[in-house]
Design a protein around this nucleic acid. Structure first.
Length: 191
DNA sequence: CGAATGATGGTCT
DNA sequence: GACCATCATTCGT
């Protein structure tokens, strides 16, 4: 595994539909309180629009206490609780006030794998694929929680880093959304 | 395998 | 009071 630089702030002030596929192959780096570094390569994301055309987006009905971070500065996390049980993490995109974000749906673990397995309370022989193959699993594996809502991704305990120059570029495919009502315009929101 | 389902609680109407 | 940007488990094939 070779890590590149963090993304520039300007990178995130662009349309979330453009950002989403470019996040595939990037690395999410999580440093725990005891110094353990957990790293995963992003393999699946989903865009949630802020222009009012996406009924599935949390921002669709305007600013609320829960989705406040989604309307805040880009390049930060928007974290929410799902089904009362699970935690999901998004990256806020576009200029402040737009309400656009990209949901982190799955990672391929690349460092700190044993610790992730423990955080997920998985058996020692569980496959790496099980560790972060879903938004709720991903947050649990990296110990992301509501306290991280609004946290920046440029420095500190949670960072998003480009793949190193020369890394094989992953094949990126985009498809329609699943798991909630389909996008009315059938846009390719899932990557 | 795949499909069905209960858990569980904050948020919004 | 309804609705979830989900997951693990259970049951059927």
């Amino acid at each position: 595994m070779r890590l590149g630089r963090t993304f520039s702030r300007a990178f995130f002030d662009r349309p979330c539909l453009a950002i989403a596929p470019e996040l595939i192959g990037a690395y999410l780096v999580r440093r725990l309180a005891d110094g353990t570094e957990l790293v995963g390569r992003i393999v699946e994301v989903e865009a949630y629009l802020g222009d009012g055309s996406d009924p599935g987006s949390h921002s669709h009905r305007g600013l609320t206490a829960r989705n406040r971070a989604m309307f805040g500065p880009s390049g930060r996390l928007y974290v929410y609780r799902s089904y009362g049980i699970h935690t999901c993490a998004n990256i806020v995109c576009e200029p402040e006030g737009h309400g656009a974000a990209v949901l982190l749906r799955a990672l391929e673990p690349t460092a700190g794998v044993e610790r992730m397995r423990a955080l997920r309370k998985l058996a020692c022989d569980a496959g790496d694929r099980e560790i972060a193959s879903g938004p709720g699993k991903l947050a649990r594996a990296l110990d992301l929680h509501m306290g991280h809502c609004g946290a920046g991704l440029f420095r500190g305990a949670i960072q998003l880093r480009r793949a190193a120059v020369g890394d094989a570029r992953p094949d990126v495919t985009c498809s329609r959304r699943i798991g909630l009502s389909p996008d009315p315009a059938d846009r390719r929101l899932r990557c």
